[in-house]
């Protein structure tokens, strides 16, 4: 069963095509990651799923419904640039958002979520008294308090410290355990790799990736080697190597098509002591950069 289905969806703003003929099938009770560079069409796609924007062409079905009405009460949305009424108390604002989703008695759910997020002592404080991280958690609670079946989160972890990010990640995973479908956009590839059942990448309005992490990595083949050398050894100008990405403790080396890994290892051994040499699949980060790096003609421009 599908939670969301997009069929040939296109959306333009004037002459700019934000989303171009995108089709997508998001199964129920999955975590779906939307990745893509800034301005590639992620937020526009999310807004269309929420029916904030209407597509110029194509069909969108959400939880089996296609009617062009306001987002229904079974779907919740946390926009990227979120705001709260500064003068309202946390309790009042959560009650307000719950009521907007048709949840009349949300006191028990509110108490659970506030305790879980460590905000119980702040329930009667005004929003203006909260830190940025706290306000972000309040906004997350406001999104999920009505126990929605489908949750759309636009950049939910941006700007959070590691502790709060972990709390929110656990909460998202918990939503899935409760049976909800979660779609979130992120720039953090490690988060997408760790959390998402399926990943969708949009670039310049077009779908460029869609599938499980495993499936996506297998498409990009086994042309990657994880390398760790003794300090001081340079990987610069290594024969048969297309690109080296430095992760600090280790480097990811992408081989040229047809290059022999054994030959590369031999070259490395001439440069210093090799501590690690592991044939691996490309990381999501590497795949993202491969797709979204400016083409040579763009760079020249």
């Amino acid at each position: 069963m599908l939670a969301v289905e997009l069929e040939g969806v296109t959306k333009s703003f004037g002459s700019f095509v934000a989303v171009n003929d995108v089709s997508l099938r998001i199964p129920v009770n999955s975590i779906y990651g939307f990745i893509g560079p800034n301005g590639s069409g992620k937020t526009t796609t999310l807004r269309m799923i929420m029916r904030i924007y209407f597509p110029d062409r194509g069909h969108i079905r959400v939880l089996g419904e296609e009617s062009w009405q306001a987002a229904n009460d079974r779907v919740a949305y946390l926009p990227e640039e979120r705001g709260l009424y500064k003068q309202m108390t946390v309790r009042d604002i959560l009650r307000f958002y719950a009521e907007l989703k048709g949840c009349r008695n949300c006191d028990a759910a509110m108490k659970d979520w506030l305790e879980r997020m460590g905000l119980m002592d702040w329930a009667d404080k005004k929003v203006e008294a909260l830190s940025k991280g706290m306000a972000q958690k309040v906004q997350f609670i406001a999104t999920v308090i009505s126990n929605p079946e489908l949750v759309l989160l636009d950049e939910p972890f941006s700007g959070l410290d590691p502790v709060n990010a972990e709390v929110l990640r656990d909460a998202v995973l918990d939503l899935k355990k409760r049976g909800a479908t979660v779609i979130f956009s992120t720039h953090d590839m490690a988060v997408a790799e760790r959390m998402c059942d399926r990943i969708f990448m949009i670039y310049r309005g077009k779908k460029v990736l869609d599938g499980t992490l495993d499936g996506i990595q297998s498409v990009y083949g086994n042309d990657t080697v994880a390398v760790r050398m003794d300090e001081g050894a340079s990987l610069e100008g290594l024969p048969g190597v297309e690109k080296v990405t430095d992760f600090g403790n280790h480097q990811e080396v992408r081989l040229r098509p047809g290059s022999d890994p054994q030959a590369v290892l031999a070259s490395l051994m001439q440069r210093g002591r090799v501590r690690r040499f592991e044939e691996t699949r490309p990381s999501l980060h590497d795949i993202f950069v491969r797709i979204a790096s400016p083409a040579p003609e763009d760079r020249r421009a």
Partner: peptide
């Protein structure tokens, strides 16, 4: 204020603009 504080989009996630 709702527009500049990005509250409007949160609200539009729950209600239609006309509502």
């Amino acid at each position: 204020e709702e527009k500049s504080m990005r509250i409007a989009e949160v609200l539009l996630g729950s209600v239609a603009p006309f509502q």
